[in-house]
Design a binder for these strands. Structure first.
Lengths: 219, 219
DNA sequence: GCCAGGATCAGGGGCGTCCCCGATGGTGGT
DNA sequence: ACCACCATCGGGGACGCCCCTGATCCTGGC
């Protein structure tokens, strides 16, 4: 992490329905940013953004009055230089994708540290898109076709179509016998494919595979 | 709320996996209480409670390492004057009931204000039970005898201490051999306990157990 | 003292998982 | 034609998982 990158002291508005959490963010940010205002629901947030014209809005996704996406919609065009950084407990795909589609430039979970958050604010203000590492995967998946995915999926790409098919069923808890019945092939063929899957993904058991797949939301 | 009631400055330990939220609680509490320690997971929490013997533990329900209930279980009897106040985003019945059954003396949501939280801490320390208004209803319902939330825990309650221990490790993906090494017992004993676990929970394989446990957030 | 229940362990058996060694046929590239 | 790769299968083995029938020790209740 950058650590001491502070620099410009961007202006921000903090939007979250929990006063406690807003206080936590404020405390963690210290004087690294300028907090223009706080808001606890959609109406307050819209008013605060229009009044303050902040560079960055820290935006909770689940918010009384229509959710964080509603805030973005209702301020669109009226706050030209403002960028939105979603800050949520949820790591559900629909929340992430929905928020990004609404126009947020980043999405980080509340498990982030203060230092990382300051860094994320800096980068969003500079025009970058910022995502928690764990989320980056399916954000890119959702926009697949335009962007190619690297790193994580390199392993997955080396699997053949049939191997991926077997992998999905095994990861869901199917036994070799059940996979064989499902795909109309013999148990031995399933074993062969599984051997290839485990070797290519550098795993050693079906349990590890289950975890690997669920971490990547491939189920 | 009561507002200026301060009085005795109770000692507390704050347990939550989000550093940001801990900072918020700490900031909101100010010097109205004495914060002995913070903890981010079950192990840290148990250590902090045993070391500090606080009057009140502010306890997140969803916590890496087994959840808040696990903290209560593992400190039971070893911290005589300590009372637990659950502080959670969840208002789900099973979370509330489960936490209370584990021994917590109160349950408030994170939408609470700092003032109200200080008041709740005072009252829990004094021996009162404290609940967010919206939750009080079905807490009483549950102990009135109706609700079938009990069904989930009845199965779990029939497990012995040792069986629960084995169950947790197996559900996390440990092999029998690894569990045996971890608990300093033989593989055959692990098999015996697992047989009892599967029979009592009416499951048929370790895979089903993994799902069962993850659905109930027992990991 | 007897009995129930919990924790510990052993032997053995059936089946699942994962690996090794092969083999055959098809397909696409050179 | 040859080679690389894929999908399909088989035998056999080592080990893990799950169940069965036992057994011993200890603790607590009647």
């Amino acid at each position: 992490m950058a650590g001491t990158r502070s620099g410009t002291r961007h202006s921000v508005v903090i939007v979250d329905d929990h006063a406690m959490f807003r206080a936590g963010v404020r405390a963690e940010l210290g004087d690294a940013v300028e907090v223009l205002a706080e808001a606890a629901d959609v109406d307050e947030a819209v008013a605060a953004v229009l009044a303050g014209q902040p560079e960055v809005v820290l935006l909770d996704v689940h918010l009384p009055g229509g959710g964080g996406a509603e805030v973005i919609r209702r301020t669109a065009g009226k706050a030209v230089d403002t960028r939105f950084l979603a800050l949520s407990v949820s790591d559900a795909a629909e929340d992430v994708i929905g928020t990004i589609r609404s126009g947020a430039r980043g999405y980080v979970t509340k498990s982030i540290t203060g230092e990382e958050l300051i860094d994320a604010i800096d980068r969003v203000a500079a025009g970058d898109a910022v995502f928690s590492p764990r989320l980056a995967g399916f954000v890119l998946d959702a926009f697949a076709g335009t962007i190619e995915v690297a790193a994580v999926d390199e392993d997955l790409d080396r699997l053949t179509e049939r191997e991926r098919e077997v992998m999905r069923l095994i990861a869901r808890g199917y036994s070799y016998k059940e996979v064989a019945a499902e795909l109309f092939i013999s148990i031995k063929t399933v074993e062969t494919h599984m051997g290839a899957v485990l070797r290519k993904l550098q795993l050693s058991s079906r349990h590890e595979l289950t975890r690997w797949a669920s971490e990547r939301r491939l189920l």
